[in-house]
């Protein structure tokens, strides 16, 4: 009787999956790296960066992201943690043990309109 075969998931797949999950979260963004750091862009439209450390069938995730401001950093990152824990496991079968989050920037909503043009409304 032959073996049904094995399924191998690379760490990069887990990283991309986690990053894509976060892209759908409102108020969470990332930074594009640009070329040698030149032209890096931080935006709520970008995907956060995720590093994964696999250990057996579980992993720990290190997330670097930006958040909209003002919002509770604790609340927002707990939402990130919960979403990643459930959805990464659901999509990849890899158990997420810990999610370390580094908040790299905060984007104030009030600054979205820029300073050159001011609203009279």
């Amino acid at each position: 009787m032959s073996s049904p075969g094995t399924l191998t998931i690379a760490d990069k797949v887990v990283e991309k999956t986690a990053s894509q999950i976060l892209k759908g979260l409102p108020g969470v963004g990332g930074t594009t790296s640009g070329f040698l750091g030149i032209g890096a862009n931080s935006s709520l439209e970008n995907r956060p960066s995720v590093d994964v450390t696999l250990s057996g069938r579980s992993c720990t995730l290190a997330v670097q992201l930006g958040l909209s401001y003002p919002s509770s950093i604790t609340e927002a990152t707990e939402t990130v943690r919960e979403r990643l824990s459930t959805e990464v496991e659901h999509l990849t079968g890899v158990t997420v043990r810990q999610v370390d989050v580094a908040v790299r920037w905060l984007k104030p909503e009030s600054a979205a309109g820029g300073r050159g043009a001011r609203s009279l409304a």
């Binding site: 943690r81 999610v99 580094a102 908040v103």
Partner: peptide, 24 residues
Amino acid sequence: LQRDARTGVTTVTANVIAEAVAED
């Protein structure tokens, strides 16, 4: 700023907060 360090830590530097406050 995490609730429970067993599920992971949340770190943010004072400079990140300060820049957001200044921009605000």
